[in-house]
């Protein structure tokens, strides 16, 4: 008996206690509920967002009293009327929407060849280089990247220094609409390429070879074979880029210098400058509605792409 006790290691005994404890708090008859138990913490955590949306909805229906700077207790739709009728917000919404459309088109034009080369190249070193060039900025974060652009494009920036040496007077390259759009394009490139790449991988290279051997030029092959087959990826990437740039804050704030605000900047100003939380909440809710609608369309039409969770096996 004594030798048996020695041979039975401590870890085993600890495991036995653990098993007994688990069997006690979660009897085997509850086994069917195990996956729900596993999901519960994640559901609760994401529930914070739902709670947040409810708070936003509640705040959005309270009007700011200009005398006391408190929100009203009574509900009203006045904030929505203001958000939808005041020309100031229409200007900002128009700038954001037109901007995100332009950004989407330009981003796709650059992302498509990038993804194509990355998927089709036979050199694994080149593929790795392209992937690293893509992931590095993605992981560096928006603020540092925007800071880099400030150094390059600022009035005392690199470009103007070079132009100065060539005798060209200082150009105002920052704090205008094109600067914001440019910043957004380079911010969105990694997202677009990563959404496009799986779609391009799915197109067999033989199809292009076949088109070529039947006499189609590469442009024709591109137009009539590759582009149509890549359409799901293009639409998916396009919608993601559009939503992200429509709702972006940092790039318009840093490269627009306050004169090129997008919707997110207007929301921030309502909360932290004007202190009209009600109107800010209203704008947030409207933006969430538009943004979620766009992404919802992507997910229902094309699936979540590489981000699909579960789904494949079982």
């Amino acid at each position: 008996m004594r030798t048996y006790r020695v041979a039975y290691p401590l870890t085993w005994r600890a495991m036995d206690v653990l098993e007994a404890f688990v069997a006690f708090v979660w009897p085997p008859s509850f086994r069917a509920a195990v996956p729900y138990l596993f999901l519960l913490p994640a559901l609760i955590l994401v529930g914070l967002l739902v709670l947040g949306l409810i708070q936003i909805a509640d705040t959005s229906m309270r009007v700011l009293d200009r005398d006391t700077f408190l929100l009203s207790d009574a509900y009203s739709l006045d904030n929505y009327r203001r958000a939808l009728t005041e020309p100031f917000f229409a200007t900002i919404a128009g700038r954001s929407i037109i901007g995100s459309l332009i950004v989407t088109v330009i981003t796709l034009v650059f992302a498509f060849p990038y993804a194509y080369l990355m998927v089709r190249t036979s050199s694994s070193a080149l593929r790795k280089f392209l992937l690293v060039a893509l992931f590095l900025p993605f992981f560096i974060g928006q603020v540092v990247r925007a800071y880099g652009w400030l150094i390059i494009l600022g009035n005392q920036g690199i470009v103007n220094d070079i132009l100065g040496h060539a005798g060209i007077p200082t150009l105002r390259l920052l704090y205008n609409y094109p600067a914001v759009l440019f910043g957004l394009v380079q911010y969105m490139l990694p997202f677009a390429v990563l959404m496009l790449a799986p779609a391009l991988t799915a197109i067999p290279e033989e199809l292009e070879a076949a088109a070529g051997s039947l006499g189609a030029s590469w442009l024709k092959t591109f137009r009539h074979v590759v582009l149509p087959l890549a359409r799901p990826g293009l639409v998916g990437a396009g919608l993601v880029v559009m939503t992200l740039s429509l709702t972006d804050f940092a790039i318009p704030a840093m490269l627009g210098g306050g004169s090129q605000d997008f919707i997110a900047n207007a929301i921030y100003d309502q909360f932290f400058r004007t202190s009209d939380q009600g109107l800010g909440a209203t704008l947030s809710l409207l933006l969430v509605a538009v943004g979620s609608l766009l992404v919802g369309v992507v997910f229902t039409a094309f699936g979540a792409g590489t981000l699909a969770m579960g789904g494949r096996r079982k």
Binding site: A42, L49, G52, I267, G291
Partner: peptide, 24 residues
């Protein structure tokens, strides 16, 4: 449904999530 729900952090624009969590 659960998948759509768990993807909410991606579908809700960041400014919306941020403002909501700020209020909470």
């Amino acid at each position: 449904t659960i998948q759509v729900y768990l993807l909410l952090p991606f579908t809700i624009p960041l400014i919306g999530s941020g403002i909501g969590l700020m209020l909470v």
